[in-house]
């Protein structure tokens, strides 16, 4: 059971490029299926290419893609940008929730980085706040998330409510 869980996690964690042949090593993926947190919701298909067209890499990838950080809070220290070993969100934002214990760690980098959000937090804070700021892109939960059976049970969703016009986006 334990082994199975571990295997399932290893497979599902993070981004799996999908949609046709994978682009060459140094090309960013066009479509990313986000399913590391799928349990109550079906995996989310994230159109990476669309976001590349609209936003600077550093908007989301901070300083790991070798483009300089844009947030003035980051640029205090991160004056130069070297490409990180990995640009995947999950490398810094774990599936584990942040906790007060992060603030107690003695590592020098934790002097400032005492408050790193989880993977779910990173997605929902980054995505939603930006969508709101630029007034484009999905905002409502169901615009991205179709419920699994488990999810429907969790939220006490009845089929009648899911069928209402407002919620149909959930099944697309």
């Amino acid at each position: 059971m334990k082994y199975f869980l571990f295997a399932a996690m290893a497979i599902s964690i993070g981004a799996i490029p999908a949609g046709g042949a994978p682009p060459p090593e140094d090309e960013p993926p066009r479509l990313i299926v986000l399913d590391s947190l799928a349990h109550f919701y079906e995996p989310v298909r994230f159109d990476h290419q669309l976001h590349i067209d609209y936003a600077d890499c550093a908007e989301c990838h901070h300083h790991t893609t070798a483009s300089p950080a844009t947030d003035p809070r980051c640029t205090i220290c991160h004056t130069t940008a070297t490409a990180g070993a990995s640009v995947a969100c999950r490398n810094c934002h774990g599936t584990k929730r942040p906790s007060g214990e992060d603030a107690a760690k003695p590592r020098p980098s934790h002097r400032y980085h005492i408050d790193i959000v989880s993977l779910a937090g990173a997605y929902h804070i980054n995505c939603l706040d930006c969508h709101q700021a630029v007034d484009a892109g999905p905002i409502e939960c169901i615009d991205c998330h179709a419920f699994t059976e488990e999810g429907k049970k969790f939220f006490h969703l009845t089929d009648s409510l899911l069928g209402s016009p407002k919620n149909q986006g959930a099944d697309q």
Binding site: R97, S99, G100, E101, D102, D115, V117, A120, G121, I125
Partner: peptide, 24 residues
């Protein structure tokens, strides 16, 4: 806390959370 998608809820020792809150 574990259900919150936006990390609006952070769990930990009270002293550490006060530190994080001041940091924010």
């Amino acid at each position: 806390v574990e259900a919150c998608p936006r990390d609006a809820l952070t769990f930990g020792e009270r002293e550490s959370l006060l530190r994080i809150a001041r940091h924010r």
